[in-house]
Design a protein around this nucleic acid. Sequence first.
RNA 1: GCCGCCGUAGCUCAGUGGUAGAGCGCACCCUUGGUAAGGGUGAGGUCACGGGUUCAAAUCCCGUCGGUGGCUCCA
Length: 695
Amino acid sequence: MPNITLPDGSVRSYDSPVTALDIAADISEGLRDSTLGARINGTLCDATQPIAEDAEVTLITARKGEKESHPDALMLIRHSCAHVMAEAIQRIKPSAQLVYGPPLETGFYYDIAFDSNSPLSSDEFEAIEKEMKSIIDEDRSFTRYELPNDEGLQKLESEGSKYKIDNAQRAIEGGADTLTWYATGTPNEHWEDLCRGPHVPSTGKIGAFKLQSIASSYWHGDADSDSLTRVYGIAFVHKKQLKQHLKLLEEAKKRDHRVLGKKLDLFHIDEQVGQGLLLWTPNGATVRQELQTFISEELRKQDYSQVFTPHIGKLDLYRTSGHYPYYQESQYPPLIDPEQLGRLADEGCSCADLSNLMKDGDIEGYLLKPMNCPHHIRIYANGQHSYRDLPIRLAEFGTVYRWEQSGEIGGMTRVRGFTQDDAHLFCTEEQVAGEIIGCLNLVNIIFNTLGMDNFKVRVGLRDVDSDKYVGDPANWDKAEQACRDAAETLGVPWSEEQGEAAFYGPKIDFIVNDVLGRPWQLGTVQVDYNLPERFDLSYIGSDGKHHRPVMIHRAPFGSMERFIGVLIEHFAGAFPTWLAPEQVRVLAISEKSNDYAHHVRNTLKAAGIRTSVDTSDERIQAKIRNGADAKIPWLVVVGPRDAEASNVSVRMRGIMDDLGAVSLEQFTSAIQSEIQTRGETSALATCFPDVEKPQ
RNA sequence: GCCGCCGUAGCUCAGUGGUAGAGCGCACCCUUGGUAAGGGUGAGGUCACGGGUUCAAAUCCCGUCGGUGGCUCCA
């Protein structure tokens, strides 16, 4: 008979099998009401699951008043809400076939196959939500029942849902002994769904929900398979949480780099120029330029050599590198030289012929470069290198072009032309570990300066059972260990993933989430044994013989486009002074102070500070508001009083009040110093030591 | 590429068969104001583009382009 150990270590003994609900009721009536499920020996289960053996049980509860609910509670509620939604949808569209409806950290969805002549539109959300509301109001129990595999399959076949049959078959292949259903109410009487569970005790436990969006998905994630409709929703324990969540989403939207990019005029994407082709407007270009200067300074410290290479290269170069044959779908088609094109035309070559010639590689021409490495490799290969010269580090803000699928393109984070902060290191086998550490140092410096500590690190290792990898396994072992060691030096959480290495070497990736929670890979450091081989690179060793160098590809930011997109969101558009496009704006109190305002502006400008002046006919209140709206770090108000004393009255972004007056001279040098040290010194602390730093 | 939604002034959006609108911004005028929106006047639109239906289309239908949310992809 079961002895139940609760998280506090207390043990309760029962004469017969009990459920989590029984245990909760034993403790208190209120606890019973708030119990949604249980972790039984660590596994999330229904609260109604009978426990016959000794077990460790954690009750999963949710109280109406709580600010945040336990993730398990939300999972249960969301999974259950997916069922309620599916039932409601099937009431409205009986021909809809259910496929798969899991909970997510951010909500839930249900993949549904609709009749092609009766698709679902978000206009119908209101009607569906109304049905859901009534199902929840009925507070019907989630009732689990099981059938033996063969009997269950028979049932599904008689119902004729190929998707559910498939789910069942997969469950059986995965080792399931029985198939389980959940009825929302009484089996055979109420709606039910083949489902592994677990669920909340009854529909009434779903306190608040909202349907969010409609999207399409592929069956089994296979683009060649059936196209399904995915309906997204969100559910919480109570309405306040839902409201709070929706408010957060609203706030997140304001931080979206696409919204801020427009508002602050950082970049523009123009239909007439092309999809996924970014135009950096002056403000955005300033941010990028500052960042590139910063990186370049660090690269110089680390003995990198700057190079420049063109945007195109001969097709044969990319045949040697392997990019052209293997990654054709991701490239713009080759550029064909005019003579060859004319000759093909004379020969009566059709578009289809041309396409085939391109596909087969029977064509000469140039490729818009998808990567910078071949060009850098040719720089290395151009001369003979002694082991004494290594490592050679060639760096370039190299612009590459890739044919991304149209549906993927958006904002700054996924574009068709972008500039990598690229570099290729050519080194000896022994130098690999040290060079990787060096790359990560750089990442550390940059991310620290920017205050970005919210990135994840993923170390991609080879799958030892596979033979697709090039290079000596012993070297792989060393390189993989070097990657792990280097990742450790960053002091942020990192994971290693087997089979995630490139075929040519292990790698370290940096991943950051955007405001909408979508992950983006930024930088990467990759060890490469392959390209030196393909290009037959060598260096002369101390033994006087030729040796193969190892290459490291590294782009710690990934691309300027994606990185700055993420950076805009990181700062919510409020860039630190050294990065801000407009660093100081001088606000003249009235026309009488315009001359002094211009003098202040010119003084700051002469000190290298990006400064503008507002001498418009607005009142000072409006000028302050406009300046704050533009997220300018420093506003200085100047009137007759300030002119008299050669002062400026300072406002800092993030502080509601006027900080008071300081001399123009002091302000100028304090701002200058803050910019030059990239925020290590603080103009606020220098000029106003008693004022606390905002945030 | 696939599916849903969307495309109206520089920006944010209202307008759902019958004379194209608002707020912000912009220009000009008034105002000369000391710390988060002073007032007035005005300019600005081939309603993304191309076809179709209709007496009549921003509005309905088809296609294209672009945006967006997902899916798939991302060397």
